[in-house]
């Protein structure tokens, strides 16, 4: 897996008779890390689902390509909640989607993936409902990784875990991204998380939503969370988000 290139051109998506996204154009280079921010309900999840192929486009073009060959790219999704199958043990959940000819090979890969996200070994054979929120989300991350994705989609994956666990999971994610080289698209409400992890942060806004602004994060890795450049960028993104969320009021007072 070396990462897929994603191209969106003039994409328009509706749910029911409600137009959610319109004229979305984006290029996500192979192996890059993109963060998407935007007000609640703007259509971030919808955009990820379109990338995963579970929501049809009304208009426009979407292509996900592996640069080396034309073969079908592998897309994996980490949902907002762990979404493990409650009737399979943790390792079985991962083995279910693992590639491999034999059951034992899939199990081996599942163990390796769970180890890669630093899940304690005694949690491997636990039922999902026995796991803490952070452990379950790690298992979900392992399940996505075991498929050897070219494109990894993450929908607010760490929003339900405590602050310390969140920082740790962010570092695991970064470590895995550097190791495996997949293209990552992360939806998040946490602007700190966005600027710390991503190469680029895009802001979705408007109704129907489109890409309002795009911020390049030109800070080399490994990054320091306290880096002044990150702090400055964070302030800019927050400012843009604020304008986006408070649009009607700002427009009324400004004109």
């Amino acid at each position: 897996m070396t990462g897929a290139t994603v191209r969106l051109e003039g994409v328009r998506i509706g749910l029911g008779d409600h137009l959610v996204l319109s004229d979305v154009s984006l290029v996500i280079p192979a192996g890059s890390f993109l963060a998407i921010v935007g007000p609640s309900g703007v259509g971030k999840t919808t955009l990820l689902r379109a990338l995963a192929g579970t929501v049809p486009l009304r208009e426009g073009r979407l292509s996900i390509e592996r640069p080396q060959d034309g073969s079908a790219p592998q897309v994996a999704f980490v949902f907002q909640e762990p979404r493990l199958l409650p009737w399979l043990r943790t390792s079985e959940n991962v083995a279910l989607v693992a590639p491999g000819r034999s059951a034992s090979e899939r199990r081996q890969r599942a163990y390796a993936a769970l180890a890669a996200v630093h899940l304690p070994e005694r949690a491997f054979s636990a039922w999902p409902r026995q796991l803490s929120g952070g452990m379950a989300q790690r298992a979900a991350l392992a399940r996505a990784l075991v498929t050897e994705p070219d494109l990894l989609l993450l929908d607010e994956p760490f929003s339900a875990v405590d602050a310390l666990t969140r920082l740790r999971l962010q570092d695991y994610l970064l470590e895995l991204w550097e190791r495996f080289g997949f293209t990552a698209v992360l939806v998040t409400h946490d602007v700190d998380e966005a600027v710390y992890l991503a190469d680029r942060v895009v802001l979705l806004g408007g109704r129907p939503a489109t890409v309002q602004e795009s911020f390049a994060v030109d800070v080399p890795r490994p990054r320091d969370r306290g880096d002044a450049r990150l702090a400055a960028l964070r302030a800019r993104v927050l400012g843009a988000l604020d304008r986006e969320a408070g649009e009607p009021i700002a427009a009324a007072s400004g004109q």
Binding site: G53, T54, A76, F77, R83, L85, W87, L96, V97, T147
Partner: peptide
């Protein structure tokens, strides 16, 4: 949501039935 998971991870008809639908309805 579990059905969507099955779709995204391309479990296919048989495995969706075997691992998602049947245990969920059981």
């Amino acid at each position: 949501r579990l059905v969507e998971f099955a779709q995204v991870y391309r479990l296919g008809r048989w495995r969706t039935l075997r691992f998602v639908l049947i245990p969920g309805a059981l």
